[in-house]
Amino acid sequence: MLLSHRTKEKIDIVDLSGKLVMGDAVTETRKKLLDVIKLGQGNLILNLTEVNFMDSSGLSVLISALKAARGKKGDVVLLGLTPSVRTLIELTRLQQIFNIFQEETAAVTYMNS
């Protein structure tokens, strides 16, 4: 699992790539995302364009991040779901709590609105 952090218009953006699955990938990603939310404004775009596989442990990371962000009156949105990740999100009906975008500019505009 590779992870990089950048900011755009004061919005935190984390780019993930690889598999977000049980083990070190989940542990390290959860810690990093919670750190980013804690140190930032609480608004996070999670770019999953390069995440080709996720298990339910990965979902728990997304929910932990969302809860932390909402605790700061912020939000987490998801960007660029691959088919397998989209299927997982839809099966677990988490599209009800995450806004999902395909374009980064649209996600940034939403966060700034």
Binding site: S60, I63, L66, K67, L88, L91, T92, Q96, I97
Partner: peptide
């Protein structure tokens, strides 16, 4: 029930427990 989400109350959304549900669905 594990996917019966109330979007207005995210604190009640579990951080796990989807495994068997997913297996049965897939």
């Amino acid at each position: 029930a594990v996917v019966d989400i109330d979007p207005s109350n995210i604190d009640q959304i579990p951080n796990g427990g989807w495994g068997l549900y997913l297996i049965k669905e897939l």
